[in-house]
């Protein structure tokens, strides 16, 4: 018995194991690398149909649920309101207290984004399940903010704000 516990191999593996919570805590709260699936953020992310060249992005998580850290046109990952085990990647088109001109499936023409909520849409407006379907989303549902594309290498340095989806999302009243 005692030989196992005192062997250097046991001690070393215990030491390595003790760092696992640190890695998980870091990935949960500070930063994480995520793979983007689907065409809803085209052309900013996943610009072509090739399954093998999907984008991997660097996520920043620290303080990402705080309204003061969120700006219009930031790209965020959120938990889907209609299924908590799904994650969506969308662009913020409205922050709290903005008035938004909505698109088709939404039953009202304009909507005021409530306190600590965001209005999200995919850049690929026609192929996106977004706030026009499920309404404004609580900032507590945000998983992280997309900082940059890190894979594939050909996409390094991509400007994520080159296209920002719909330009007329904000109603005039808010813009002034």
């Amino acid at each position: 018995m005692s030989t196992i516990f005192h062997s250097p191999g046991f001690k070393r593996s215990l030491k390595i194991l003790s760092w696992i919570p640190v890695i998980i805590a870091f990935n949960d709260n500070v930063s994480y690398i995520a793979r983007i699936k689907g065409p809803s953020m085209r052309p900013s992310l996943n610009p072509n149909d090739n399954e093998l060249s999907t984008d991997w992005v660097l996520l920043w998580k620290w303080g990402c649920t705080q309204s003061y850290n969120l700006k219009r046109n930031d790209i965020v990952l959120i938990k889907s309101p209609s299924d908590p085990h799904k994650i969506y990647c969308k662009r913020i088109k409205g922050v709290q207290f903005d008035t938004i001109k909505t698109l088709h499936p939404y039953p009202k023409e304009t909507v005021l984004v409530p306190r600590n909520h965001i209005w999200v849409e995919g850049d690929n407006v026609t192929q996106s399940v977004d706030s026009n379907n499920f309404g404004a989303v609580a900032t507590g549902m945000i998983v992280g903010k997309v900082v940059k594309v890190i894979w594939p290498p050909t996409r390094w340095g991509t400007n994520l704000n080159e296209t920002v989806g719909r330009h007329d999302a904000l109603s005039l009243a808010t813009r002034q």
Partner: peptide
């Protein structure tokens, strides 16, 4: 805010 919920 939940999706627009109709009252029945």
């Amino acid at each position: 805010m939940a999706p627009a919920t109709p009252v029945v």
